[in-house]
């Protein structure tokens, strides 16, 4: 009796979820496979003529292969920023957790500021220009690090709290220098939380639109999200190509999601339990 009711509620929830959460993605996929005229009708139908591959080639080659450049830029920025975020974030989290001092209050204040305060964009551009880093990928990488640090430090700090201090001391007695304790004992033990930080931050940085919009204007530096945004205004009528672009932008997070579902959820729900 009870299980039958559960089955029906389940089926109803399933149907609603599919309509609300799956249909939009199906729409993206179908439109991406249509011809220009077919797509412009905006209908939710199977394509009259499947041309997924041709649309793919058209989008990739559009505007002098800009999408490839965009993927290259986004990848470089994401990989560099995430690698340094992990390293620097873990180092701060480590000292913050292991060495209680007056500085900790200050560092915590910075973490809270980093999580809450919206970046002051124009003054940031002013600083970047002064450093000669405005409109450069290096500048963009550093910005992403600055904005992602607070999250990374918090996650690393709470994970490091679970690693017994005895290990550090055993390493000290074994003759390890401070950097050896960190790199040879602590860092390898941070693997689970490191995976979480990598995955969550990669998706955040890859999907970031606002920051490249401000700090990385210019054709040669386009990122994936910026190209998509520009396509919207430039190919306003070619919905098949626009949606092919959306499809392509959606695939990387989808792949990451399939493999790292658990780590993503863990990272994003951290703090929900203990408050």
């Amino acid at each position: 009796m009870n299980s039958r009711r559960q089955l029906f509620t389940g089926l109803a929830a399933l149907a609603a979820t599919i309509v609300i959460f799956v249909l939009p993605f199906l729409f993206i996929f179908l439109t991406a496979a249509k011809t220009k005229q077919d797509a412009s009708l905006l209908t939710f139908t199977l394509p009259q003529q499947w041309q997924l591959w041709q649309n793919f080639m058209d989008v990739v080659s559009a505007r002098d292969y800009m999408l490839l450049l965009a993927y290259f830029n986004s990848t470089v920025i994401t990989v560099a920023a995430v690698a340094l975020l992990v390293l620097f974030g873990a180092m701060v989290g480590y000292v913050l957790q292991r060495r209680p001092s007056r500085w900790n209050t200050l560092i915590f204040a910075c973490v809270m500021i980093g999580l809450m305060v919206p970046p002051a964009v124009v003054p940031t551009i002013w600083v970047l220009q002064w450093l000669d880093l405005f409109k450069t990928r290096t500048g963009m990488v550093l910005i992403q690090i600055a904005y992602g640090l607070a999250f990374a430090v918090l996650l690393f700090r709470s994970f490091i709290a679970t690693i017994p201090r005895d290990l550090d001391e055993a390493a000290i007695i074994d003759g390890a220098k401070p950097w050896q304790i960190f790199f040879r004992v602590i860092l390898p033990l941070l693997k689970p939380v490191t995976v979480t930080v990598i995955v969550v931050q990669s998706i955040a940085i890859f999907n970031d639109f606002t920051n490249p919009l401000y700090y990385l204007p210019g054709r040669e530096n386009v990122t994936v999200q910026l190209t998509l945004y520009n396509f919207q205004s430039q190919f306003g009528t070619e919905f098949n190509l626009l949606f092919m672009n959306i499809l392509l932008v959606t695939i990387p997070p989808l792949i990451v999601f399939i493999f790292f579902n658990r780590q993503i959820v863990a990272g994003m729900t951290a703090g929900a339990v203990k408050g």
């Binding site: 017994p164 005895d166 001391e169 055993a170 390493a171 074994d174 050896q180 040879r184 033990l189």
Partner: peptide, 25 residues
């Protein structure tokens, strides 16, 4: 040399690497 209450063995290293850790450093 010290033996800790929790043993403080490096969890990511094998027994061989644990014993040899100091020498490898």
């Amino acid at each position: 040399a010290m033996v800790f209450q929790s043993y403080a063995l490096y969890p990511h290293l094998t027994v061989r690497e644990n014993i040899g850790f100091g020498l490898s450093l």
